[in-house]
Design a protein around this nucleic acid. Sequence first.
DNA 1: CTCATCTACATGCAAAATGCACATAGATGA
DNA 2: TCATCTATGTGCATTTTGCATGTAGATGAG
Lengths: 133, 133
Amino acid sequence: MPGRGRCGSENRKRCRRRSIYGFLEPCLLLLLHGKESHGYQLLEDLEKFGFHEVPADSSTIYRMLRSLEERNLVESRWNEGDAGPARRVYSLTDEGNLYLKSWVEELKKTRHILQTFLKKYRRHMEIFHGEND
Amino acid sequence: MPGRGRCGSENRKRCRRRSIYGFLEPCLLLLLHGKESHGYQLLEDLEKFGFHEVPADSSTIYRMLRSLEERNLVESRWNEGDAGPARRVYSLTDEGNLYLKSWVEELKKTRHILQTFLKKYRRHMEIFHGEND
DNA sequence: CTCATCTACATGCAAAATGCACATAGATGA
DNA sequence: TCATCTATGTGCATTTTGCATGTAGATGAG
């Protein structure tokens, strides 16, 4: 069931996200690495990264895939052979592979900044409250 | 010199960010933890987190601080005593302190997802190319 | 056969975040 | 006097994204 809310509780509207921005993009690229797939499948496979909630709406995923295709990072073909409605099957291009690689470098830096932040916070807590977490 | 470009090279326009979304918010809160400060100072102090480029424009920082104040997470007063132009000095409220704490929990989850992603990528590289990174 | 449901993809719209250009204004020193 | 630095802010356009909704073939129950 795609298109469901992402923010946990019911009637909250448009809550702040507080997660990695555009992280959907490298996730899709990595899922497509060495294994072609289609939007609806990718939506389900995103779970594998350990999100508590799906990090994006289905519409966002379809749009992201089209955006990747416009930038020649993935390519698509129609698969009408199998059961069910036709699917647009995406696969990674060589360029997309390189792009994924650059994303990984970026995410390593992000991890480092995150470490710095959390270390800094812990130090603060030790000084101000004698707590540690 | 605030207001400079953020994307490294010169003529590129509006490049994709590929970093943590809204990460500015917890950074500002942590910088204000136990030490009041003003926008222009905070802009410089952001370096301490190890960013390669400042993660936000000065206008974004000032707007973010106002937004935090509207949500009662920080409070401000005017400091006109010292040298130079008047500064709006912000300090963390109790509520803001709790909010920072919740941000930290969120960022720990983010760190975990990031680890999962990078591990998954490394595994792929080992399988597909015999490389490891 | 009919109809609800599931799978799959897509669009329209509005809200939110944010970069860039620019405005404002006091302080400072040449 | 005037350029420059510090400091805060606004206006505008672009990008991203959630939510609602549309379309359409496939599938199974009745």
